[in-house]
Design a protein around this nucleic acid. Sequence first.
DNA 1: TTACAAAACTAACGCATATTAGTTTTTAAG
DNA 2: CTTAAAAACTAATATGCGTTAGTTTTGTAA
Lengths: 196, 196
Amino acid sequence: MAKIKSGNNSTKKETVIEQAAFLFKTKGYPAASMRELAIALGVEAPSLYNYIGSKSELLQTICFNVASEFSVNLGRVENSLEATIAKVESIIRFHIQTMLSRFNEVYVANHEWKHLEEPYFSEFLHFRRDYEKRLVILIEAGIEKKEIKNLHPYVTVLTILSAVRGLEFWHGHKKNVTAQELENDMVNHLLHGIVK
Amino acid sequence: MAKIKSGNNSTKKETVIEQAAFLFKTKGYPAASMRELAIALGVEAPSLYNYIGSKSELLQTICFNVASEFSVNLGRVENSLEATIAKVESIIRFHIQTMLSRFNEVYVANHEWKHLEEPYFSEFLHFRRDYEKRLVILIEAGIEKKEIKNLHPYVTVLTILSAVRGLEFWHGHKKNVTAQELENDMVNHLLHGIVK
DNA sequence: TTACAAAACTAACGCATATTAGTTTTTAAG
DNA sequence: CTTAAAAACTAATATGCGTTAGTTTTGTAA
């Protein structure tokens, strides 16, 4: 009856994925049903299978799309000629901006990936570990060059990644802070601390 | 047939709750089944109902137990006579220690509370907002007394809470960092930054 | 040993799930 | 207008869920 509407710049499949990201974020992957997704798209559940292979395929697509974006950005930064501390700042800003602009998908990639099926689960886990490792190497280089304090590099990476991830709590809270202020204050905090 | 074994210092109900926390953390609340919980306790699923009222009651118990602990601690700190920055440090250390010592329950309270049913969902949400608000007030007092940098207080609170929460990723990673080093380095990072 | 309660069991209910099969409607091109 | 493919539908299947009812076993105290 009703057809799935898609914006001009996106295929119908992409529309389904976007809506799925919203739903997976809101209810969690296991609790989100295909019927509910179908209703949100104005369609019966079986019709979705004209566009997608399965529910789990939706999760896979979302998670690996996000992973790819972060990986590509990190590659760019690694190959740049900036000082280490500038690289770190650049990565933090990318995380914040991506978190804010592609909220649903990033949230799902952060929280629901544990529901991936094998072999995707292992692959994603490996990606995460690899990404962390690359950041640790970056921090170690900064310590070596005496740009960065000699804290345990993995703890530093963990603190940064976690802080940035926490923006999901800001989303929706309409505090009187602009995205730019938020980004600057968080970068400032993570690089220079809060003690005067 | 088999009976639920409980350590000497805990009732059987507490044993069920502990195992439920582990399961809810591992699979997520919606995907965790009572049958699976029962198997982990060496029992058939209906037997669980001799100890508990329902699956959702388990989630409620876990979430509000954790909430209560954090609230009590914050109350203690608020009423102490330390400098603001020492209060903030104390709170950070409490979060880290509690996260590490009661990992499963804290994880569930952090991630699965959105599956609480009304009115518990709203109550928990209110608690969270209240807790954040009390921290914001603390930070504002520190800014007032010029102990703390004048960043947006909510962003500061968000950064701290999120960073600390991220310890869930450390758990299981057996890096060569002791809990004490981890705690000290993270406190150092959050208070003084990483830039030399 | 008897009696009672605690705690386990088996069987089953009602419901929701993802997905498939088969069919009909809609859309667009020749 | 015809035709063929795309996209929707209805109906149904198998599976798993939380939970209840009713019964049997186990443990404990009189």
